[in-house]
Amino acid sequence: MSDLEILEAAKAAVIAADEDAATKVARQAVAQGLDALKVINEGFTPGMREVGDLFERGTMFLPEVILASEAMVAAVGVLEESLPDKKKDGHVASIVLGTIEGDVHDIGKGILATLMRVYGFQVHDLGRDVPLTSFLEKVKQTGAGLVGSSALMTTTMVGQKALEKMLKDAGVRDQVKTMVGGAVVTQYWADRIGADAYAENAQEAVAKALELVGHDR
């Protein structure tokens, strides 16, 4: 296979969520002496980006996205072996994520947790109905640079405002970027409470998070 064919095969394997094919391409790339970073950046990563786009357009679904992610992780594992300086902890950033106390809606937040893992974030998912103090404790414990809170109801979105204050009072607000989302949450609300970002959906949230931590998508 030519170099270009290998890059194309890497991309196709991720889009097809085919772990066997992805690791086979990775091994072939190593055998042919290709630059591992080039294969990751120009083969597997564009494949994963397309998976994200297909998810956003509703033609690829959550279980398939996870399988695609697993295919990429397996392939990258093979390629990493050939890197002279192995970079084992490849997390883009760390995020504490949860649905505000009193709110049991967690489907959207769950999708976001999955997508963020797919894009290389270390996700500390606190789940749903999360007391505000738990967000703070987790931030202190992990040193996460991002805090994402979700609220589906107008009665619980006020918790996002209280969370901003709690982070400020605890002296950690300057160390983190905050993101808010959920069905009733808007950019106006994010601006009003002083959150760093608002996202309309999970895909946009990933893009905004990458922007906040200074990574290109």
């Binding site: 399988l67 489907i107 769950g110 947790a113 893992r117």
Partner: peptide, 22 residues
């Protein structure tokens, strides 16, 4: 949603999927 944990007897897909338990 009410059939999944903690409201119901079944595992919650929103918890299981992010863990890769497809």
């Amino acid at each position: 949603g009410l059939y999944y944990a903690p409201d119901g007897p079944l595992g919650n897909p929103s918890d299981l999927l992010p863990k890769g338990k497809i």
